[in-house]
Amino acid sequence: MRKFALLAAVALAAALTLSACSKHEDEQQAASAQAAQVTRPADKNDTEGWNKYLVQLLQKNLQGMSASQPYAYLVTPGDTDEAKAQNDRQLSTVQDTVARGVLPGNLLAFAGPDSAKTADLVVTAFTGAKAGSFKDVIVLFIGDQADQQRVEEAIKPTGATFRFVQM
């Protein structure tokens, strides 16, 4: 809640500042905000760049979350042994979470440079999830449109609120 009170205060201050500014200043502000944005990395193996980019998308899509922090699950691309080990570890963490259920107000986000791989992890982890176990929980999938439907269908029985963000 603290984070949301702070975000609300920042948003209000920004709105007041903008209304008092000239168009020129607006443009300058927009330009500097743009500069602070992390752009989508071209290289799928730029892990640090991708993590920053995906977490930025996550932070812009926290609406409705009442918990203090989201839970981000970042899926590693590639088929190296290291990537496989990381994703197996990630899958088992998510499966444990799904088996336990999640308290209302939380937000779980799934993302990775390889949208299909992220979607596979979500679909596997949510297979057999208890009906209604994610009521009032938001599940955010950051990926490609092509994978949206199967992820949405996989989480549907849990009662979670599904949110898709194009990466």
Binding site: K3, L58, S68, Q69, P70, Y71
Partner: peptide, 25 residues
């Protein structure tokens, strides 16, 4: 800090196993 998004990226990077998931982050 509490701006942590619980992404778990830091935990395996720590050579001393000093990082873990706390109550909220």
């Amino acid at each position: 800090l509490d701006t942590c998004v619980n992404c778990d990226v830091c935990e395996p990077a720590c050579p001393n196993k000093a990082i873990s998931l706390g109550e909220q982050f």
